[in-house]
Nucleic acid binder design. Structure first.
Lengths: 141, 141
DNA sequence: TCCACGTTTAGACTTATTCTAAATACAGAC
DNA sequence: GTCTGTATTTAGAATAAGTCTAAACGTGGA
């Protein structure tokens, strides 16, 4: 089914301009976890006017801030975008670099043993939160 | 105890030059998960000669390749370095940005419920491996 | 229609990192 | 001890990703 991108943007408080629509539409229609530049390359021909990289970055940041898409980092220093906002994790194919979504319940069920389909070489958990009762950890010096 | 940095580098196949020694020494002596620039700022005065940023980057890349330290990414686009090579995960304090090491067994014991000390806002698991039986996933288009 | 304001654009700028070419250091051969 | 080849380091140029800026544009409401 075709996503109603216009409504999606509106309900998240992002005014649906043509530029924002084609960018959001592209992200919603792919599972490839593209970088900002890949988004730019993919959508620049889909508008009657020329598209500025600044608009792509502005839009991606706006979509992240609005909770329409999220940033994903799988290689040090590269930012990717993912319109799948369901509770999920990521599997990185170490041969191809492909990033595959893993639903949270899959991971819960099998307790980080991904079973037949994926051969887990390593995994890493990043947790975001607050330290209760202030600095008791081993952070900086 | 003072780390024997020279031996550590040698046994990992990295020739222990003065520049590499002070960089490795700094990383081994901190829990602050510094960026490349923070490493540069911290060690540049500790040598009788001037230190080039290129040397810092070369050394960090060499140390990562040799398995002496690892790269950590907690904010999109920022690369940090961690000389703790034991099996561990990371906790990011969302107020301060501090990155705190969490031993793997801690995480296993409490099954991602970090209990009293850390209030978990969100966490994310990134898994690296191979897809068994080739491309059956939902990666690109 | 006109205005105000938000958006987009091109390009300059910044920051992080890599590349390059020359200078340096050092281990081994003599 | 000197020579020589190779690896390392250096400063600065080059590149890449992302942000900023100022001007132009578009659109909804008076």
């Amino acid at each position: 089914m075709k996503h109603n991108v216009e409504e999606l943007l509106s309900t998240h408080g992002v005014k649906p301009t043509p530029q924002r629509m084609v960018i959001a539409e592209y992200l919603l229609g792919t599972h490839s976890h593209p970088t900002a530049d890949e988004v730019f390359q993919a959508v620049k021909t889909k508008l009657p006017v020329s598209l500025s990289r600044a608009t792509v970055y502005n839009t991606l940041n706006a979509l992240v801030a609005a909770g329409v898409v999220q940033e994903v980092t799988t290689e040090a220093g590269r930012v990717r975008y993912d319109a799948n906002m369901s509770d999920h994790h990521h599997f990185v194919d170490i041969e191809t670099g492909d990033v595959i979504d893993i639903p949270a319940e899959t991971l819960n069920q099998i307790k980080l043993e991904l079973g037949d389909k994926y051969k887990v070489r390593s995994f890493h958990v990043t947790i975001f939160g607050e330290v209760v009762g202030g600095k008791a950890g081993n952070t900086s010096e």
